[in-house]
């Protein structure tokens, strides 16, 4: 009984910590590459309400805390010899892809905080954006399944 609990924990912890880092990293890529370097995204594009701004602010704070917390959890797992590297990578990809999809669907389309790029036809950009998210998510899930079934 106890060994199953430990196995569950041994799987859950690195995956979870990896997912936290993945979400934070993807949010960081969004912030640095698309907002700052390419300047495709705007700080504020005039389309969203105050409630959208507030939601965005809280989401951003959440991502920042996740990034640092996840990184330190990985360090802590490593110190305790509990860091299953492949699971951590799988978690990272799932987190990154999941966040990309969430950003593409909820932030861009439902909350309309900002668009991928301000061009006449934004559809190809939206499709590419969400496809990348789906791809990362898929690879992460496959890695996770493989690692877990190898373990058994």
């Amino acid at each position: 009984m106890e060994s199953t609990i430990n196995t569950a924990k041994a799987v859950r912890w690195p995956t979870g910590a990896g997912a936290m880092v993945g979400i934070g990293l993807m949010a960081g890529v969004d912030e640095i590459v698309f907002h700052q370097i390419l300047a495709w995204h705007h700080f504020y594009d005039g389309a969203s309400e105050t409630i959208g701004i507030m939601a965005d602010g809280f989401l951003h704070a959440f991502e920042l805390v996740l990034l640092v917390a996840g990184f330190f959890l990985l360090l802590d797992l490593r110190r305790r010899n509990m860091l299953l590297t492949k699971l951590a990578w799988a978690g990272t990809l799932v987190g990154a892809g999941g966040f990309q999809l969430f950003d593409g669907i909820v932030n861009h389309k439902l909350l309309r905080l900002h668009q991928v790029r301000y061009v006449d036809n934004v559809l190809p950009y939206d499709v590419a954006w969400n496809a990348v998210g789906l791809l990362l998510l898929g690879i992460g899930l496959i890695m996770y399944r493989r690692r877990v079934s190898n373990h058994d």
């Binding site: 700080f43 504020y44 701004i53 507030m54 965005d56 602010g57 809280f58 951003h60 704070a61 959440f62 920042l64 805390v65």
Partner: peptide, 12 residues
């Protein structure tokens, strides 16, 4: 967490 969120909201 609240500080980051409220600070960011204030800026926007």
């Amino acid at each position: 967490f609240l500080s980051i969120a409220l600070h960011g909201c204030l800026c926007k």
